[in-house]
Design a protein around this nucleic acid. Structure first.
Lengths: 148, 148
DNA sequence: TTTGCTGCAAATAGTTTGCAGAGAC
DNA sequence: GTCTCTGCAAACTATTTGCAGCAAA
């Protein structure tokens, strides 16, 4: 994983190369996605930016997140309840472990994964382009607070 | 995997045990989900049932699919584009391989999976309840038709 | 007869779109 | 000065809900 500052620089550079305008709103959205340690939702990005840009619009957040997704610089995590959160640090597919109580997301190391992709390609004849591998459960903290 | 007729019988038995009414609509929805070889969407179930029940309502399909999900008799497959499809044959989590061109869904055998769950539980301290493991790619047929 | 289910219509939530003015280059 | 982007409001889509009548048990 690239360091967050680098990820931000990479994204800005892509905007430049594609002759897209570097508006303050766009840069701020990119910065949140690249630097955030968590996995913010569109709503969270919007709330955070309203402090700086009083006229910030949800539509602008949606448009720019879509743009970054299309560049492959943001990974969309879609949850069973239909909500989406975004990862700008590791924009490539990787497994997640998600707490269904508190919403925490952990990224486990799971080296066996690459082999599985090949295995599946071989077995099914598909050309595999991407995947999604998420575990749902209860994190250690929530397990403990249940016991109270 | 139980044979489809058995799956249907199991579901009907659950309705009975829970003192839920065996309405013709409910039974028809359960039957489609249990017997269908594909992975129908709510819309598809609805379209199919309109032929038999001219007054069939989408709300009824949604309500009964929800019911079956809550019993663990139907697995929801949610796609990146936000659409949902349902599997009543194998209602437990299992991997899918999905063609992004034609929408075909294949269920590969993937025995390594159980070990991975334990591995992840150990590494993260989570109590893992369920998971989702989907591959996206292009099926053999669509690969060939591209070449034309 | 009782209770829960269905069908309809309205409500809801998340996301997208059209358009006019603002701002990046 | 040009052309894209933003902000706003309206549109849209998938799903859920309230309610009155209907049907299963």
């Amino acid at each position: 994983m690239a360091n967050p500052q680098d990820r931000y620089a990479i994204i800005v550079e892509k905007f430049r190369k594609k002759s897209l305008k570097l508006t303050p709103q766009r840069l701020a959205i990119a910065k949140i996605l690249a630097l955030s340690k968590g996995h913010p939702s569109v709503e969270e990005i919007f709330e955070q930016l309203k402090k700086t840009f009083s006229t910030m619009s949800l539509a602008t957040v949606y448009r720019n997140v879509l743009l970054l997704k299309s560049f492959g610089d943001v990974l969309e995590l879609s949850f069973p309840d239909g909500s989406n959160r975004y990862d700008g640090n590791r924009p490539y597919p990787h497994p997640h472990v998600i707490c269904i109580k508190c919403g925490a997301i952990v990224d486990p190391a799971l080296d066996a994964l690459k082999d599985l992709t090949h295995l599946v390609a071989k077995e099914t004849g598909f050309q595999i382009l991407t995947h999604r591998f998420d575990f749902f459960g209860i994190c250690r903290r929530c397990q403990n607070s249940d016991k109270k």
